[in-house]
Amino acid sequence: MALSVQNLTKKYGEKVVVDNLSFEMNKPGVFALLGTNGAGKTTTIRIILGMLSYNSGKVLWDGKPFDAINMSVGYLAEERGLYPKYSLLDQLLYFAKLRNVPKKEAIKRIKYWSERLLVEEYVFPPKTRRGRNTKSNRAEQLSKGNQQKIQLMAALLADPQFLILDEPLSGLDPVNTDLFKQIIREEIAKEKYLIMSSHQMPTIEEFCSDIVILDRGKTVLQGNLNEIKKDYGRVNLFIKADKDINEHISQLGIKIQNKTPSEYHLKVQNEEQAMALLSKLIEEKIPVVKFELREPSLHEIFVEKVGNVHEDE
């Protein structure tokens, strides 16, 4: 089972919003769809889910045309959407019905997820003696975080095999962020296929194995995240010494990325250059407190790739 997006192109008039995009998900896990605002991430997601038509290309699941309506799919949209005036239980049951979950099973799952996400008091509010709800059960009176939980419930109700999460952690407090992360880990453990779109690079690094970075509809980088980092090499040097080492750094022609009172963040051309600096400092008998050579972060890769394109223009 795999998702295959082949040469996908979408135009609005003369404007190309997705330009010849191709990627594959051959195994369960999390695939990251990254890009600046307006890069075409949401359009790509909408095309995959069948909400939008496209000009050319293919979206296949297991070699057959992808059909979100008749497949096991869950979607947490970037812009949260709930009926503000209707009861939460009614709308969750509706979303479950649309995904062909029988009512009895849907209620069971809603109970499970509302307990898990700590929103049971809103979905199943206790009644007064007169049969009135003690708490509001309508979306319009919930906090943004709680609305997001209900939205995640709606995406998970059908226990989908393929899940798309568009900015799943935005606007959540640290406690709820951990709760969401735990649930995402559980879904990954169940061998599900996830596409995640986020601007929080540490989160992407935490979960994703493969990425594609889009910029104005064009693919600027794609592949396995570890391999991409390996290709970049260990070029980030974090060094801390007891004496001023500015002179030694400039002698070797190393670029200072950032400097704090106690530490340097240097960008070396290769590992040999870093080792040369270390040898020089030892030779000069300068005590080195910290010497850490590591690959670039996803954040740096993203800024470099997207920034480069913009600079070229």
Binding site: R46, L49, G50, M51, Y75, A77, E79, Y83, Q151
Partner: peptide
């Protein structure tokens, strides 16, 4: 319009045309 403005429509469109 309410479904469009509240973005519920995206939730619906993965299930129905």
């Amino acid at each position: 319009v309410m479904e469009k403005s509240s973005k519920v429509i995206e939730q619906l469109l993965i299930s129905v045309k």
